[in-house]
């Protein structure tokens, strides 16, 4: 198993495999750990199903807390912009599908919230963004390219809503990289 030492690896380099439980935020150049989580009580979604287009993972501590609400609403506002990159946005927290369902409806969110519920925080752990002490997912953002490799990642202080500008900048760079150094992704 290779540890993450290739943060600055060029896009064409083979992706490094992440450690089983990384010590910190997974960095660019590392294969995004696949996962299957519930999006609703009877629907599951796997990251690998989304290959071919960028994916934005928004890890956040909890449904209903004020800052999280703002953060997800800002991503909701940004959906028209994010769609221009064919990007799929997924929110992930340790809340249950039932909490997610009520929260999505209340905030009129136009993207899926996935339940990192059982085993609690397992996906966040695999991305190096689980808060052991607090028992919740840290506030972290990942942009994953169409090949399933992390292109950009960011860990925000829990109390600070990071906004969407970093994700949009990363998607701009990803689009530029894809169009100049590799054939267009199918």
């Amino acid at each position: 198993m290779t540890t993450n030492s290739s943060a600055a690896a060029p896009a064409a380099a083979p992706a490094a495999e992440p450690a089983a439980e990384p010590a910190g935020l997974l960095q660019p150049g590392v294969s995004a750990p696949d996962f299957t989580l519930k999006a609703t009580a009877d629907q599951e979604l796997s990251l690998s199903e989304l290959r071919g287009n960028p994916v934005v993972l928004v890890f956040y501590p909890a449904d209903w807390s004020p800052v999280c609400g703002d953060e997800l609403l800002v991503f909701n506002q940004a959906l028209p912009l994010l769609r221009k990159y064919n990007a799929t946005v997924l929110g992930i927290s340790v809340d249950s599908v039932w909490s997610h369902q009520a929260f999505e409806q209340d905030r009129k969110l136009g993207f899926d919230l996935l339940a990192d519920y059982q085993p609690k925080g397992a996906v966040a752990r695999s991305y190096g963004v689980y808060d052991e002490q607090g028992g919740f997912d840290k506030r972290a953002l990942f942009v994953i390219d169409g090949a399933g490799v992390i292109f950009w990642s960011y860990l925000s202080p829990t109390a600070i809503n990071p906004g969407v500008d970093g994700v949009l900048d990363a998607l701009d760079r990803l689009q530029h990289t894809s169009s100049t150094t590799t054939p267009a992704q199918q």
Partner: peptide, 15 residues
């Protein structure tokens, strides 16, 4: 209005 929202999102408006 949407153009202004988009400019805000790109500029780091987070609320």
């Amino acid at each position: 209005i949407q153009d202004q929202v988009d400019s805000g999102l790109r500029s780091g408006v987070n609320g």
